[in-house]
Simulated assay, not measured.
Amino acid sequence: MRILGIETSCDETGVAIYDDEKGLLAHQLYSQVKLHADYGGVVPELASRDHVKKTIPLIKATLTEAGLTPKDLDGIAYTAGPGLAGALIVGASIGRSLAYAWNVPAVAIHHMEGHLLSPMLEEIQPPVPFISLLVTGGHTLLIEVKSMGEYVILGESIDDAVGEAFDKTANLMGFDYPGGSMLSKLAERGNSKRFTFPRPMTDRPSLDFSFSGLKTFTANTIAVNDKDEQTRADIARAFEDAVVDTLMIKCKLALKQRSMKRLVVAGGVGANRHLRVKLEQLTASIGGEVYYPRAEFCTDNGAMIAYAGMQRLKNGEHNDLEIEVFPRWPIDQLTAIKT
């Protein structure tokens, strides 16, 4: 079974083809970072227009890369939510229309399920059940994965997601959007002992997250200190340490509460080197394991949508001709996938 996956939930256009026997055959990705940089964040209307321009050319490029024609496809999967409504409509309209024209089934995919399943793109796949930490630009979630498609939300951010906190703090430090990765690079030169920032909501049994207060604490620290390069690096290090420790503490608590030792980390922030080191130390200390997708599949991409689509189509799911998207779509509303 060969599935074409289309991802257009925010500011990246991703297209891929996944084969259930050969694995990933081809993938293409276009980022809109430069388009939105001057505005300090994603402009929904501009994002939608750019998806209109880029999706069809990327589909053609992906088919060419895989050496396939539309007749070689068995289905199309597209992201239907959560995300920006206009951006989702572009991918859903194109995906559903092409499926009708090519006489193959189409299936709407949950963006976060795509991230959650992205480690399955690797040669060594995490066995279920496991605890999943999903840390993307707009979402921070701790999920118990009982089986594929059967998800229980254990904790989530009550304000800024961790990716948003990184980018907003980077902006406070003078970096252009998106500045999270640049902040992390600066933090590598920082002195971890100079500043100590709070680890929010780690003094309670709740698995929810809150990063807005940490962002404010960082802003106040910037305001009362010199702006030399070393001080900036020290503040960046203190912020990153606080975020990473908070995520590690919550993961440790989730594993303990659910009596599990297997952890999966996905989403853009999952590529953070400091976070990976901490979580590897955590799982090693309890005799467990941690799994990640490769760095290129931590951010939004079509490969994860193609893989999730393959699983859903094999489960007998498909969508009719009505095109519908869900800017807000709780992941625990999904149905279990029969194995």
Rank of each mutant, 00 (worst) to 15 (best):
Cys10Phe: 03
Ile59Met: 08
Cys251His: 07
Arg194Tyr: 01
Thr216Gly: 03
Gly75Tyr: 05
Gly137Trp: 13
Ser181Ala: 12
Glu164Met: 01
Met182Val: 11
Leu73Met: 13
Met148Arg: 03
Gly270Trp: 06
Glu229Leu: 03
Thr216Arg: 11
Ala223Val: 13
Glu113Ser: 00
Asp245Ala: 14
Met310Gln: 12
Gly137Asn: 10
Val265Leu: 07
Phe326Lys: 08
Gly179Phe: 14
Asn301Trp: 03
Asn319Thr: 12
Asp332Gln: 02
Ile89Met: 15
Leu88Tyr: 11
Val152Arg: 15
Asn220Asp: 09
Ser192Asp: 13
Lys60Val: 11
Pro126Ile: 01
Asn225Arg: 00
Pro127Val: 11
Ser285Tyr: 09
Asn171Pro: 02
His111Val: 02
Gln230Glu: 15
Pro44Cys: 06
Gly149Glu: 07
Arg294Trp: 07
Glu188His: 14
Lys227Glu: 15
Cys251Asp: 13
Pro126Phe: 04
Asp160His: 09
Lys60Met: 04
Leu154Ser: 14
Arg276Val: 05
Leu279Pro: 12
Val269Asp: 14
Ala77Thr: 11
Tyr100His: 07
Ser259Lys: 10
Ala47Trp: 14
Ile89Asn: 14
Arg49Gln: 15
Gly155Lys: 07
Thr231Leu: 01
Glu45Cys: 03
Thr136Lys: 11
Ala271Phe: 05
Asn301Ala: 04
Gln257Asn: 13
Phe175Cys: 04
Phe166Cys: 02
Met182Cys: 01
Pro205Ser: 11
Glu164Ala: 00
Phe166Ala: 01
Asp20Phe: 02
Ala254Arg: 08
Pro44Met: 04
Ser181Lys: 14
Val128Trp: 08
Arg199Gly: 01
Leu68Tyr: 05
Arg328Ile: 11
Ser97Phe: 06
Ala85Met: 14
Lys193Glu: 15
Asn103Ile: 04
Leu154Cys: 12
Thr246Val: 02
Lys250Ser: 08
Arg276Phe: 03
Leu58Pro: 08
Asn220Thr: 12
Ala26Val: 10
Asp19Phe: 04
Lys71Asn: 09
Val90Leu: 07
Asn272Leu: 01
His115Met: 02
Ala87Thr: 12
Met148Phe: 00
Ala219Phe: 06
Gly174Glu: 09
Phe130Trp: 00
Val135Thr: 15
Val269Trp: 08
Gly174Cys: 10
Phe326Asp: 04
His27Ala: 02
Gly149Phe: 02
Arg273Gln: 15
Met248Gly: 09
Asp228Ala: 03
Thr55Glu: 09
Gly40Trp: 10
Thr246Pro: 05
Lys314Glu: 09
Gln125Tyr: 00
Ala92Cys: 14
Lys54Ser: 09
Val224Met: 15
Asn103Met: 05
Ile59Trp: 10
Thr69Pro: 01
Gly114Pro: 02
His318Asn: 08
Ile131Trp: 01
His111Phe: 02
Asp160Ala: 08
Ala306Tyr: 09
Val15Pro: 00
Asp160Val: 07
Gly270Leu: 04
Gly288Lys: 09
Glu45Pro: 01
Glu289Met: 01
Ser210Val: 07
Lys71Cys: 11
Met1Glu: 12
Met248His: 08
Glu317Ile: 01
Glu150Val: 02
Phe217Gln: 10
Asp300Tyr: 00
Met173Pro: 06
Val135Cys: 04
Val104Tyr: 02
Arg49Ser: 08
